[in-house]
């Protein structure tokens, strides 16, 4: 079983590279029982959607 610390690293790296099958299975097993890491992963994904908005200049309330 992966530790939370290792899971943290994978939750970031999955945004930069394709995880191996083993990594994905281990990640899924850990997330199934750990709410804190599930939150961490959701928040990594939220950061990605925030930076996408940022780089499109779509910060703040809709303008056009």
């Amino acid at each position: 079983m992966l530790s939370c610390k290792e899971v943290n690293r994978l939750c970031s790296e999955e945004q930069d590279r394709k995880l191996s099958l083993t990594e994905r299975i281990n990640l899924r097993m850990h997330l199934a029982i750990c709410k804190a890491c599930t939150n961490f992963r959701d928040q990594m994904r939220f950061l990605r959607s925030a930076t996408r908005r940022y780089r499109e200049g779509q910060r703040g309330p809709a303008e056009d």
Binding site: K5, A36, N39
Partner: peptide, 11 residues
């Protein structure tokens, strides 16, 4: 390698 209780990411 487990979260410290006070550092666990909240929802």
């Amino acid at each position: 390698g487990h979260w410290n209780p006070e550092d666990r990411p909240p929802t």
